[in-house]
């Protein structure tokens, strides 16, 4: 009986320790990536953000124009921070992203942090777009301040021929290099200034040397 008890203790101890070590406590819910091979090597993948549905939060000042609509906070130095859910080209939410734009002096630049659970984090940087670039494009298309508008305006950041740079990232994206463009396609503006449309982050990456 004593030997049986001791055997039970050892089994219980070993079971708990084995569970602590080997049970997959975290299993990511990931969906297949939709990448395509590009002709000169590397792979292309486009991430999509739908406005206004995927917009989580924004912090920024007046200089950001319509993009600061509903800002949770005004930021010093005209920094604009935007946070979104991100979808694959099939329209399924696969991650979250943050975009920071700092227009001040020599520090001028824009940076994206793109996080896809189960796949990793991708880092993207580029030149900062001019202040109110989107507002100016909409004005050129006939939108008047304070009024609702519908139509289609397409703005590409960074401005061609410049491309944004991909700086690699973590896990699946570690060691990747490449370029990206972000295309804002605005199809409407509400009376209060809420943007409707999409942002497409088109990436082309190769494995770094």
């Amino acid at each position: 009986m004593r030997a049986t008890f001791v055997l039970g203790v050892l089994l219980g101890l070993a079971g708990v320790l084995a569970a602590a070590r080997f049970v997959p406590w975290v299993g990511p819910d990931r969906v297949p990536s939709h990448t395509t091979v590009v002709s000169n090597g590397g792979r292309a993948e486009t991430f999509v953000i739908r406005l206004p549905a995927d917009r989580i939060a924004v912090a920024g000042g007046e200089e950001a124009g319509l993009r600061a609509f509903g800002a949770a906070a005004a930021e010093p130095g005209s920094v604009l921070v935007e946070q979104f859910k991100v979808r694959d080209r099939e329209g399924q939410v696969i991650g979250v992203a943050a975009r920071h734009r700092d227009p001040m002096g020599g520090a001028s630049g824009a940076a994206w942090l793109l996080v896809v659970p189960g796949r990793g984090t991708m880092l993207l940087t580029g030149d900062a777009e001019p202040a109110r670039a989107l507002d100016n494009a909409l004005s050129s298309a006939g939108r008047r301040a304070g009024e609702a508008w519908s139509g289609e305006v397409r703005v590409v950041f960074p401005r061609p021929p410049s491309n944004g740079r991909i700086l690699g990232g973590t896990h699946e994206f570690a060691g990747l290099e490449g370029t990206y463009t972000e295309t804002w396609t605005i199809t409407g503006v509400g009376e209060s200034g809420e943007l409707r449309g999409t942002i497409e982050l088109a990436t082309v990456t190769v494995r770094g040397t």
Binding site: T4, L7, G8, L10, L13, V16
Partner: peptide, 14 residues
Amino acid sequence: MLIAGAIVGAVAGA
């Protein structure tokens, strides 16, 4: 006794 032992072992493991 085996089950009692296993419970004691599991608690010790925790």
